[in-house]
């Protein structure tokens, strides 16, 4: 069975899926990621699916599950690089990627994760600076 590598870049785990995954490989990735999030304390996960020419219901469910697991482990998941044809097919298949944040590419995905961490700080109770800077 093939295994999808997980790279650590700063505070982010990057998974670039380059193979046509068997269902077993997808489940393995789910488990590997959960372990890496805990081991590294990373707060962001980027899953790059640029190379995937299809996302079926199994892989779609895996992406949703990874997003839920990482949320519980205090990490944000962003799926990036979905091809237009894959997006069209997903919608027609009836799959709504529940709870999944998406971005067009890795760079925007990293921005999204950075922004959501900053928001978390701003929303912290007793943080008055955030309120003053919010008014234009």
């Amino acid at each position: 069975m093939e295994r999808v590598p997980i790279l650590k870049i700063g505070d982010i785990l990057l998974v670039s899926i380059q193979v046509d995954m068997s269902d077993q490989t997808a489940v393995q990735l789910q488990e590997d990621l959960a372990e890496r999030i805990v081991a590294t304390g990373c707060h962001g996960v980027i899953i790059d699916i640029t190379a995937l020419d299809i996302v079926d219901s199994f892989v779609g469910r895996m992406l949703s599950t990874i997003a839920s697991i990482s949320k519980v482990l205090d990490a944000e998941t962003v799926v990036v690089g979905m091809r237009p044809a894959v997006a069209i097919t997903l919608v027609e298949l009836g799959l709504s990627l529940n709870g999944i944040r998406t971005a067009l590419n890795v760079e925007r995905g990293m921005e999204l994760i950075a922004a959501s961490r900053t928001d978390d700080w701003d929303e912290a109770p007793g943080d008055e600076d955030a309120e003053t800077t919010a008014t234009p």
């Binding site: 299809i54 996302v55 079926d56 219901s57 199994f58 894959v86 097919t89």
Partner: peptide, 17 residues
């Protein structure tokens, strides 16, 4: 077409599973 290829391969994946 690329979209039709994608749809067919996705359908095949579901049915094969």
């Amino acid at each position: 077409s690329l979209v039709d290829q994608t749809k067919l391969v996705t359908a095949a994946s579901e049915l094969a599973r």
